[in-house]
Amino acid sequence: MIPAEFNYEVADSVDHALSLLAGYGPEAKLLAGGHSLIPMMKLRFARPSALVDIGRIAALSYVEQDDGHIRIGAGTRHHDVHHSPLIEAGCPLLSFTAGLIGDPQVRHKGTIGGSVAHGDPASDLPTVLLALDAEFVLTGSGGATRVVPASDFFKGFFETAIGPEEILTEIRVPKLGASSGWSYLKFSRRAQDWAIVGVAAIVERSNGGIGSARVALTNMGATPLRASSVEQALAGAERDAIPAAAAMAPEGTSPTSDTNAGANYRRHLADVLVGRAVEEALGGP
């Protein structure tokens, strides 16, 4: 419960953070809300030589919009994502889900950028961002930026497309239209826990049926996953197709077993929860 020794630096800008990172080399780590990194340091699973604290860079915390997108600074806290009127209006799936993370303390400290950068397949926001076809803006040395779509971003267990000397600076989310219904169902044993399984669903309604659907899964593999078979089965389908489509949810997944749930139970939950999430996103008959 007491971390190994480390250096600590406060960055006052993204540039400053990048130069500090470069100075300390590969053993240094960025610190945002600290709610994933510090627990690992306390157990001495993570032993960074230095922490570069980007949590105090005010310029990384914002919510803005343009025509089709909402742009969120990577340093925006879960609490602020949850309560942002802009996100609530343009992408309620995201603000709703931010309110399900951990407990109030976690939401006041943890950041959307940290959640994405950490690459934990049990986290809620990455799944939702994958379902939303979000884009991630990475800033490297000299202020060079590149934009990575969510579908290319999550590489493996705790592994993302972020390079060693890059910072995730912005998350861009396409707004949902009036015909979109959505749901995020998180199944956990205690309110404060990570999801045993989570399901994000976005349904484009069309004449009481389903035009198209996007479905993503939390904690069903090494990364958040799109349930492509389910999406295909639902495209242009009627409500009564939902159970059969949901039954395909486990396809292509590789859930782990832990003390809360075995892999088979997770597959079963994915089926049940996908059915319920799509129903909810489609709305009442």
């Binding site: 205690r190 309110a191 404060q192 832990d258």
Partner: peptide
Amino acid sequence: EAIYDENGILLTSSMMNYLVPSAVE
């Protein structure tokens, strides 16, 4: 539930997986 594996390693070794409920539950 304190869960050990067959080698006697405590798997529920922190409050993350040893589930002390909160007021919500």
